[in-house]
Each structure stands twice: as C-alpha cells, then as structure tokens.
Write a protein that binds this DNA or RNA. Structure first.
Lengths: 241, 241
DNA sequence: CGCGATCTTTATCGTGCGATAAATAGCGTT
DNA sequence: AACGCTATTTATCGCACGATAAAGATCGCG
C-alpha cells in the first residue's frame, strides 16, 4: 500500500523530480512531487484526508495520511494547524459541501406525481450519501459523541422530512402541516424510508455486505411499499391514486 | 452508570476499609476492593469492558477501563492476555450471548397472526439490540473492517429474514421459499423493516437524537406499514386479511 | 545566472498507551 | 497465628503519534 516515492533509478530520477507538470497533480502521487501552490496543496490534502479518515477513522495517523499523499507528515501542519482542524475541514467538504438545495424543491413540486418525486429525490440523495466517505464519516462522527450528527439530522428534518409529510398529507387529502403539525408517527414513517435507504450504505461500506441488486430498483420498491403501506395504515379521506 | 454494587454507608465494612480510608475512595468503584476470586474478577472486567468499549470505542485505553473498575491497569493482563482478547470477549458476550433462539420459533408459529408474530418478534429483538452496547459495539466492529458483521448478518438472514419472507409468502398465498427462493426484492423488503428498527438505536445511541415516542408503538406502526405496503406492491392471489 | 521567498524535509520533543517484571499484600489453610 | 499461594500493585520499557523548530530545496523574478 505504501509508496516507493524514491526514484532511485539513476535515469529517471532528476527529471521527474524536478519538472512536474503544473496543475496536473492527481491522485496517484507520483506526479505531484514538490512545491505545489498552497491552494493546490491544501486541496490535495483535504481530498486525501476525506478518503483517509473515512477508511481509517479519525484515529488514523497523520504520518500515514502524509505517506499516501507522498509528502512528509510535518507538511500537513503548514496547511492545517492541527489534526482536529483537518477533520473539521473534512466535515465541511463532505456534509455541508455536498448538500444540494434542489432536493428541497424536487419534493415540493406538485406538478409531478408524489411517487415520482420521492423516487427522484431519494435516488439523487442516495447518489450523494451512498458513498464510503459519507456513510463512514457520518458514523465515525456520531460515535465520537459530538453534536454534529444531531445538527445535521435536525436540518434534514426541517428541510426534508417535514416536507415529505406535508406532501403525503396533500396526496391523501389531509390537512397541511401548517394547520396540523406533523405527528411523531408520521415523522417516523419518513424515518423508516430514509433510514432503510441510508442503511444500504451502512451495509455496503461498513458491514461490507453490499445489497444484492440495483440500488435504484431497491429504492423504488421501498418507496412503493411505503406509499402503499401508508394508504393502508392511514386510509385517505376521499382522494386515491 | 455502570454500577455501584456496594453502598458505602458510614459504617461500611471493616473488611473493605481495611487498608483504605473510606473517604479516599475516589472515582466510582469502591465496593469490591481487592482479591476477588478469579471468576468474579474476570466477569467484572468483561462486564465493564462491554460498557467501556461501547462508549469509547475500541481505542479506549486500558488504563481508563482499569480506573473505572477500581483496579490497576496491569491487572487486566492477568485475566486477558491482550486488549484484543478482551475485545473478543466483548463480542462474544454481546452478540453471541444475547441471541435468543426462541425468536426463530416465534416467527414461524402459524397459530398466531403474522402481524402479531412480527410485532412480537421485533419488540423482543429490539429489547436486546436497542441498547447502547449492542448498537455502538456493532457499529464500531463494522468500522474496523473485520468480517464480524457480515458473519452476523448472514446468520440473521438465514435464521430470520428467510423465515419472514416465507411467512409473508404463506400469508399472501404464495409459494414457499422451499419451492421459489426468496428474491432480492423480498429480502430487501425485510431489510427495510429491520434496518428501520435498528436505526432507532443508531439515532438514540450514536446520534444522540432519540426517536420521539414509544419504541413499541413505532415498531407496530412500521410493521403495519410494511404489511400494508406489501399487499399493494405484491397483490395476493386470492387470500386476503 | 543568482537571489530571495517560501514550500518541503529532516530531526526531535513530550506524551500516551499496551504490555511485562518484580514487589506487595489479602485470604484460606493448618 | 503463622504460612504460603496468588491476587494485586508499583515501576518501567518501548514504541507510536501529534506537534514544533530548524535546515534544505525549488521556483519566480530581476
């Protein structure tokens, strides 16, 4: 796994080391050897840190991260004052930086059938969160007993769950949550679908026992089951689809 | 709180206080002071280790565990050859030791309505797994990239999921899995309910954002939604309930 | 070229942690 | 009550890891 960054071969050594193609720094660290611009270096460290801490957890050692990057460990401290600061940056990049505001609109667009909207949203959301980085980092963060996860999930509840409940209400001709607030059970029903989708990622990236079959199909089936089941548990007033 | 087995009332034991001034009993563990029988000591270490590693993760330090136990750190090594062996014991006690074989019978008992069986099973199962120890240790184990979780879940699939699918089949007058094996989608439907219940524990003990309301009610609602939804997605041949 | 700025490395400190060995002390036995 | 077995503690080793300081190397600019 480790690198052999030393171009010990007398031939190739000097050239590759001295002259690197600018800006073409990439993941396989042979290219970026020395003296990147601060901006590029910081980005490359942050990107590597995301993958690294997702795999190893936040106890992963800065020396190993540096080795993966093909740099020395003290260099990390020129760009981030501490390991904790680097972890903070990882949170930002993954959880804040990957939120798509369009999701909130998708759910509320009543020109589209509800089932379609939910499927569209959840497939798109799944594309973002069902990655090893998102799933594992989120779990590592939770296990650290910070309030980060609770904050994210409150945000999610306000931006997504409440809307989904409201759309379900409209779909079944029931009052808006503006008039009758979402009940615990209604929120839990949304949690059911949400958690069962996130759990696909837990199974694949934490348990290493990936679900059999196409995630899109599974999501579709889950949402159809949900909508059918809600119809049974909460029979509609008059409307039905 | 772990435990406080010995109340240190004013006139506590002349025995326990032999060498130690009662007032100087520091952290928490003051009851058992010294020279337990090997069996008792081992059990007390194992029990404390479950709570400790569940809280701190497997990177939790043996010195802190010893402090909680009111013993010194090297004593741990008289009862467990290494930290890793102690962790192995924790796995055994929590994941193997808490499995209830009766669960498998509950699911298959066709003298009881399916909805009742599922609710009974999942409430009982939830009683065991929806604890900080089970949930957090399971997640810590998964994040360590061992095959432990995959083995447990394969066991669960064979002992529970397949049976649930079979019972759903019977409920809706469809062929037994003995004749037509469970499909991916069917297994996924069971995963949906299962993961949404386990996720109640993740929310409470990892995210520290406990679900609102009684877990039993939530489980009941989830199972009713599941059964109703399956009826919609996979309409029955002739039978209906 | 050569020089200076700064990006990167080499060297190192202090601490924390798993583990071991030797010394100490509780408790049953006689 | 003394004895001896062994449960428990005291003392310590070795290394890993985050972090810092100083030396060295690279590149733009004149």
């Amino acid at each position: 796994m480790v690198r052999s960054p030393k171009p010990k071969s007398g031939l190739a050594g000097p050239l590759t080391a001295t002259r690197r193609s600018p800006g073409s720094a990439e993941t396989s660290q042979t290219g970026s050897r020395r003296r990147l611009s601060p901006g590029d270096r910081e980005k490359s460290i942050a990107a590597a840190a995301v993958a690294f801490f997702a795999e190893r957890g936040f106890e992963g050692q800065t020396r190993e991260l540096a080795t993966i990057l093909g740099i020395t460990q003290p260099l990390l401290y020129r760009y981030f004052p501490s390991k904790e600061a680097l972890i903070e940056r990882v949170y930002q990049d993954v959880f804040v930086g990957r939120w798509d505001p369009f999701w909130e609109e998708t759910i509320k667009d009543r020109s589209v059938p509800l089932e379609t909207r939910l499927i569209t949203f959840y497939i798109s959301y799944a594309n973002v969160i069902l990655t090893p980085e998102w799933v594992r980092l989120f779990m590592f963060a939770g296990l650290k007993n910070l309030d980060f996860n609770a904050r994210y999930l409150n945000f999610l509840r306000n931006r997504v769950f409440e809307s989904v409940v409201d759309e379900l209400r409209a779909h079944f001709d029931r009052p808006s949550i503006a008039n009758v607030p979402a009940s615990n059970i209604e929120i839990e029903i949304v949690w059911s679908i949400h958690s069962s989708i996130f759990y696909l990622g837990v199974r694949e990236f934490i348990y290493r026992l990936p679900p059999d079959g196409d995630v899109k199909d599974i999501i579709r089936a889950k949402i159809q089951t949900l909508l059918g089941g809600i119809a049974t548990v909460l029979p509609p007033a008059e409307h039905a689809t």
